[in-house]
Amino acid sequence: MTIVDLSKVSCLIDEVSSVILGKREVVQLTVAAILAGGHILFEDVPGVGKTLLVKTIASAIQSDYNRIQCTPDLLPSDIVGVSIYDQVDHQFKFHQGPIFTSLLLADEINRATPKTQSALLEAMAERKVTVDNHTYLLPQNFMLLATQNPFEFEGTFSLPEAQLDRFLMRLKIGYPNEEDELTLMTGGKREAIPIRQILTLDELTAIKSQVDNVFLHEKVAKYALALVRETRNHEDILLGVSPRGSEDFVKAAKAYALTEERDYVKPSDFQHLLLACFGHRIKLKSHKRLGETEVTSILMSIIESIPVPVGRD
């Protein structure tokens, strides 16, 4: 088994942050999601560096990488592949689509139709695809990193709850601060910055195997469960976090602890991850607006309402 120095995780975060200026927290959460083996949905306005972030991470971990530009005319076969009749062998042969990779970027995923979006569901849940009654396994480290425009934008299709629930985190990069944007305006292209390889895929796999070994005290686990269950009991929430969401919440916290070079989870880890892990999973009741301000406000009130276990931070 490959033994990896966990300080390499911090080096990975530093390397990606040297390209994505002023967004170290987003980079750290992205790396945590990768270590947890989860998928990420980046929701933000165009041009803030979502695609560049994914490409930079792929280079820093020496990963194979494919990109799909989602449009309304994209077909499921354009993603998973298609069987084509071979006139020489007189049989159908499957030609793999771009989904057969370790890191798949689905750019502007909500511009694709619901039928095309559904082609990703099996891959996201089970890391395999079925075509013409044949099942094909995806790479061990398969991960979907999808970007979507805010739903107010023209030409978008809302992602269904079943698909949103398969994303470990939803992240927003946001606009850069004044100093960083000045650097972007006056400096060279960020895409031209050489990226050092920090991890190999074997090393990444080894670190991911250590996530389950991160210690989670029973009191801290019960605290996390209380946060989850409050989303189901809150008076303004119609759809709370699912059991899959609660499992993902723990995985994310353990992986986040590794990015902090810790071998145990603190209650503050769950607080820090709550919005990223829950924000896309809850659905508000009809009398509440669906804006991000309301979602954030409700989730922050949940954190404030649940007592933190004493002596566990």
Rank of each mutant, 00 (worst) to 15 (best):
I237F: 00
R196F: 04
R111E: 07
D132Y: 07
I298P: 01
I306P: 03
I237P: 05
V308D: 02
D44G: 13
A58K: 04
C11G: 04
G37E: 12
V19L: 07
D14L: 00
Y85I: 11
F151M: 15
F151N: 10
L168M: 15
T156W: 06
K285W: 04
I195C: 03
T51Q: 12
L138G: 05
T71Y: 13
V26S: 13
L239K: 12
A257F: 01
G155L: 03
Y264Q: 09
S83L: 12
N141P: 05
L144Y: 01
S10Q: 14
E15H: 04
T259Q: 05
L238R: 15
A276I: 03
V27P: 03
N149G: 10
K128A: 13
V82D: 07
K93E: 07
I13T: 06
I79F: 09
C277Q: 07
E178S: 08
D248L: 09
S102H: 12
E191F: 03
S158W: 00
E218G: 01
L75A: 04
K283F: 02
E179F: 10
G279Q: 12
R281I: 06
L75W: 14
L121I: 05
P150A: 08
N133T: 04
R312N: 09
A257P: 06
T56R: 02
V211S: 09
A146M: 01
T2Y: 07
V19Q: 04
E292C: 01
K208E: 15
V16I: 13
A36V: 08
Y65P: 07
K254L: 08
M143L: 13
V228T: 14
S242N: 05
L12T: 11
E191V: 08
K222Y: 10
I3T: 13
A257I: 03
V308F: 00
A32K: 00
V131Y: 07
A221Q: 10
V27C: 07
F94V: 01
F167H: 02
N177V: 00
Q96D: 02
E191D: 15
R312F: 09
L299W: 06
V16A: 11
H95Q: 14
H280K: 11
D5Q: 07
T293F: 03
T113H: 13
Y136M: 02
L238H: 11
S242F: 11
V16G: 09
S7F: 01
S242K: 12
Q28A: 08
V214C: 08
S59T: 10
S246A: 15
C11H: 04
N66M: 11
A221C: 08
I298Y: 01
K55D: 12
P176K: 02
V9D: 13
Q28L: 06
L274A: 14
E152H: 13
L239C: 03
N110R: 06
V82P: 00
D269W: 07
P139G: 09
E179T: 02
L137D: 15
Q140V: 04
S10L: 05
V82A: 04
